[in-house]
Amino acid sequence: MTTATKPPTPSPHVPVGLDWQLAIAQELIARGVSVAAYVPDSRLNGVLAALGERDIRLRNLAREEECVAYAAGQRIAEARPVVLMQSSGLGNALNALGSLAVPYRLGIPLIISMRGTLGEKNPSQVPMGRATTAWLGALGIQSFSLRQASEVGPVISGVLDLAFDAGETAAVLLEPELGGGRA
């Protein structure tokens, strides 16, 4: 089920030109997401601020592994969480993904802000960024790249379908082409 992307209403917290962050938040809200568990990333700020403005519960947890386990606790009670992290944190989350989310078929939607790929200037973040889709794929988790604001609706909605309806943990990768990365 795909929701048409409506022009997002402005938010005082989302920088001009980064409407995709607002559009993501609106799609999550439209699909009944009630809580976001995350470890911060600059490109997630706008999404989280827009969720917070609409009284979606925000849970800044200490580790990405906690975010996945937190979401697993929500999903076993059939609530609708989303997990947001930077790709640098995926390594911290692998055990909870591979030993909990996937074998229990809890269907957790992941939104991963990509580092270590196109335009990366920090050498230490390249290996994990380069490996992100491979790590996920090795666990049987599908990932979908988001590169244009116009694709927010179908990609976010499609990943929520996979997670909440098919019981498949699945990831949206926020690629550098969306903008908002470090200059």
């Binding site: 568990a37 947890l61 386990a69 937190y70 606790g73 929500q74 076993i76 969480p81």
Partner: peptide, 10 residues
């Protein structure tokens, strides 16, 4: 423990 936190809040 993080799983229990998520469940408790749900």
């Amino acid at each position: 423990l993080a799983g229990a936190l998520g469940l408790a809040e749900a």
